[in-house]
């Protein structure tokens, strides 16, 4: 379930397969039997049956990863189950907090980052699987002093309110304009169909994306 972008369904690579990530996440304490119950619904598992004490064991190894983020080599010691998103936000020092943790299941797009220029949900990628790839976050696209065209257009069109979804939208649309400099409105809708906004900025996000495409032309 990687994001469907630009009309083509990107089949999940193993690295970004949510079931694999979830499995690994669930493996922290539980053996295989318990993990399967967890996948069904970890919350209700105790309501259904007591999990067997003998099944439980702790996997506590950590591993040093070297991540290439926004043009910089960064290292952190993470667990195999640590997601790229958590590694960026909670393990790197200083942290990279542009990508946000919102749904933690690949539904909302707030954590969108570019992995080798392709937008992915950072909450569905394990940090260890991002090693050796170019990671670009919203911070790598522009700064408050030097915004890229998409960021400028977002400000001008007021395509943000609380702003918590904004880094995800900006990243998804920046990626769209790189591969499709003149998108139609429907192509814009499609490029960020995997991004949620609760304040209700979508129409202005569309406006901003189309304005940014024109701005880039003038550059």
């Amino acid at each position: 379930m990687t994001k469907k972008r630009d009309g083509q369904t990107e089949r999940p690579e193993s690295a970004t397969d949510p079931s694999r990530r979830r499995f690994l996440k669930g493996m922290g304490l539980a053996g295989a039997g318990a993990a399967i119950i967890d996948l069904l619904d970890p919350e209700l598992a105790p309501a259904r049956e007591g999990s067997s004490e003998a099944d439980r064991q702790l996997i506590s190894d950590t591993v040093e990863v070297s991540l290439f983020v926004n043009g910089q080599r960064r290292t952190a010691r993470v667990e195999p189950r640590t997601t790229l998103l958590t590694a960026l936000r909670e393990y790197l020092d200083p942290p990279i907090t542009g990508p946000k943790l919102v749904c933690d299941m690949g539904a909302c797009g707030a954590c969108t980052v570019l992995l080798d220029d392709k937008p992915v949900y950072a909450c569905l990628v394990l940090a260890v699987d991002a090693v050796g790839k170019r990671i670009t976050t919203v911070e790598g696209l522009g700064t408050p002093e030097k915004m890229n065209a998409v960021q400028q257009a977002f400000v001008e069109k007021d395509a943000l309110m609380c702003g918590f979804c904004t880094p995800g939208f900006v990243t998804a649309i920046s990626a769209l304009l790189r591969r499709n400099p003149h998108p139609t409105l429907d192509e814009v809708r499609e490029a960020c169909q995997g991004n949620f906004c609760r304040c209700g900025t979508y129409p202005r996000v569309f406006e901003a994306a189309l304005a940014a495409a024109q701005m880039k032309d003038r550059e």
Partner: peptide, 16 residues
């Protein structure tokens, strides 16, 4: 706006 669109804006969730 500029802080929010570039990821520079710090939310509670971003604090360390």
């Amino acid at each position: 706006g500029p802080a929010k669109v570039t990821g520079a804006a710090l939310y509670t969730y971003d604090r360390r």
